[in-house]
Amino acid sequence: MVTRVTSFCVIQPIPGNGMNRNGQVILEFCLVFIIAAALILGLLGLWRWSNGNIPARQGEYERTRVKAGKKVSPGSPEPSGTVYGADPPPEPYYLHQ
């Protein structure tokens, strides 16, 4: 409770001031908490997406590895300008669920 000393040395409470301050703190905390939580969740989502890209990319390359190195005509040298069995896979933009 916030008090005030008057010229007659009588301590008088300032009505409602303490309660208002508590209310403001709660409102500010709620606002900042929501903003901070949104930022942290966004960052975690980005990190998870980026982290998941690494095994997704590895899997894509492994999946096409044998096909990429397969000879078109087995048992003979490839002519120059041979089109290879598989192109390098594109960059993964979305996580594999």
């Binding site: 980026s50 590895q58 390359y61 290879y84 960059e91």
Partner: peptide
């Protein structure tokens, strides 16, 4: 944090691309 994750991703991507290029050249 974002820079680190981007850097890891790029490094792995370049390594995989080089490995695929090596596969083609070894096959040729």
């Amino acid at each position: 944090v974002i820079g680190l994750s981007e850097s890891y991703n790029r490094r792995q991507s370049y390594m995989q691309q080089t490995f695929r290029a090596t596969l083609y050249k070894a096959k040729a």
